[in-house]
C-alpha cells in the first residue's frame, strides 16, 4: 500500500525508546520517571505495529493492545504509589526513598 521502509519505522521506535530511557536515568522527579516509562512503552508498541504491518499479520496490533492495557494498569498503580510516597516523604525526589541502601 505504501513504500515506507521497515527500517525507518523500527528506527523511529528505537529513537523514541532511547530518549525515554535517557529521561528515566537523568530525572529525579518520580512523575517524570513515570512519564518516561510511558514513552518507552509506547515506543515498544510502535515496534510491534511496524512488524505486524510488515508481515500483514494482526499479531503486532494485538501485542500493542496488550501493552496498552499493561501501561494503563501500570500508570494507575504507579500514580497511587507516587501519592503514597509524597504523603510520607513530602517530596517527589526518588533519591529520598533510598532506605534499601545496602
Amino acid at each position: 500500500m505504501s513504500s515506507i521502509p521497515m527500517e525507518a519505522g523500527l528506527l523511529l521506535a528505537g529513537i523514541l525508546f532511547v530518549i525515554g530511557m535517557v529521561s528515566v536515568m537523568i530525572r529525579r522527579n518520580v512523575i517524570f520517571m513515570l512519564i518516561s516509562v510511558e514513552i518507552m512503552l509506547n515506543a515498544a508498541g510502535l515496534a510491534f505495529i511496524v512488524a505486524g504491518s510488515h508481515w500483514a499479520q494482526p499479531d503486532g496490533q494485538i501485542m500493542f493492545i496488550f501493552i496498552l492495557t499493561m501501561a494503563a494498569a501500570e500508570v494507575s498503580v504507579g500514580l497511587a504509589l507516587i501519592l503514597q510516597l509524597y504523603h510520607h516523604l513530602k517530596t517527589l525526589d526518588s533519591d529520598a526513598a533510598n532506605f534499601m541502601k545496602g
Binding site: M21, V24, M25, I26, R27, R28, M33, S94, D95, A97, N98, F99, M100, K101, G102
Partner: peptide, 18 residues
Amino acid sequence: LFSDSQTGLVRNYVMGIV
C-alpha cells in the same frame, strides 16, 4: 563491593539494567 552497589537510588538501578 556489591552491597555498595545497592545505592537505593532507582536511577542507578536503571543504569545497571541499561
